[in-house]
Design a protein around this nucleic acid. Sequence first.
DNA 1: ATTGTTGTTGACCGAACAGTCAAAAACAGG
DNA 2: CCTGTTTTTGACTGTTCGGTCAACAACAAT
Lengths: 181, 181
Amino acid sequence: MRAFRRYGYAGTSLDTLTRTTGLKRGSLYNAYPGKRALFVAALADYANATVGHVERTLSVAADPLAGVAEALRRVARAATSADGRHGCLLANTAAELGARDAEIQAMVAAAFARLEAAYAGAFSRAQQSGQLRADADPATIGRLCVALTHGLRVLAASGAEERELQAVVEAALGAVTRYAP
Amino acid sequence: MRAFRRYGYAGTSLDTLTRTTGLKRGSLYNAYPGKRALFVAALADYANATVGHVERTLSVAADPLAGVAEALRRVARAATSADGRHGCLLANTAAELGARDAEIQAMVAAAFARLEAAYAGAFSRAQQSGQLRADADPATIGRLCVALTHGLRVLAASGAEERELQAVVEAALGAVTRYAP
DNA sequence: ATTGTTGTTGACCGAACAGTCAAAAACAGG
DNA sequence: CCTGTTTTTGACTGTTCGGTCAACAACAAT
C-alpha cells in the first residue's frame, strides 16, 4: 500500500514489492493472481482505512459542523506530513488509472461516495439543528468538502506548507458557516 | 504532453512517445537528452498553456467575480470532457513525482503559484470595487479556488458527471459571494 | 515417524524498458 | 552541382519488467 502510494501503480515494480513486503516473488503470486489484483487489494484496504477514519471523526463529534472542521483540519495536517506528501492513494489512482480501468474507477468512486455521504450526513444534521440554511444541499456541500480535501493533497504534493493549507481550510469553513440562517 | 497526461510519467514508454509524436527514437534523443528532459519540456508547455488560459479568462472579464465564476465553470466542463478525464498534468505530476523530484516539484509549485496569483488578483480587484469584504485574504481565497479546481479534476477522473461538478462550483461561488459586505 | 497440504524459494522466461550509434537521407550555402 | 552540416532512421545494447515453475521447507493430522 505504501509503495503504490509513493511510486504509483506503473512506478511500483515487483522487485519493489518483494523488497517492501519481505515476501518473495512466488509467495506474492501464490496469494494474488498478479500485480493488478495485489494493487486492488491494497487499494481496498486503503479506502476502508481512510474513509473509515473520516466517518469516525464526523460521527464522534458532538457538533456536526465542528466535526467537519476537525476532519478538514486533519487532512491539512496529514497532507503535509512526510508520508502525506505522496498524496492520497485513491486520488492518485483516479488520476493514473481512473479513465482507463473501469473496475478500479468504480472502487475509487465508491470510496469517494462514502466520503461525500459522511460529510453530507454531518451537514444534514447541522440543518436539523438549525446550524445550516435549509435550502443548502448537504450532498453538494459534502462533495465540495471532498473536492477540497483532494485539492489540499495536491497542493501539499507540490510543496505547500501546513500553515497555508490550514488557512484555506479556515476560509472554506468560514464560507460554509455563512450558509447559516 | 497528451501521452504523459494519459499514462503518467512512469506509464509512458519511449515506444509510446515515438508512436504519438511520429518521431523515431533517435530523433527524440537528438532533441532531448532523455525521457525526463522531454517530460520537463512537455510539463513546461502544459503549464504555460493552461495557466495562461486561466489568467486570460480572469483578466478579460469585466467583473472580477464573474471572471472567477467563468474560470471555475470552465474547469468543471473541461474536467468532464473525454480528454479532461485524465486529469491535469500538473496535478498528476505533483502526485506522482512531487515528493521525489525537487526540480519538477518546483515547476509544479510555480505553476500553482501563478494560478493562485491570478485568482487572488481577481479577488483583490473585487475588494477594491466593494464586491468582497475587506478583511478577506485574496491570496487564501485564491488558493482555495486552486485547491477546488484540483479537487474537481480528481472527482472527474473518478467518473463524476459535469452536472455534479457544476453544482459544487455554484455552491462554492455562493459561499464566496457571501463574503460580500 | 509418515503422510498430504500449504507456503516459500530462487532460478528462469519472453517481452518491454530506456538509451546508443553508425549509416543514410535531407538540407543548406556557395 | 557540389559540399559540410543537421536530421532521421532502424538496428542494437544491457537492464528491468511482470509472470512462471519445479524443487524445497514447514506444518498439522494421523
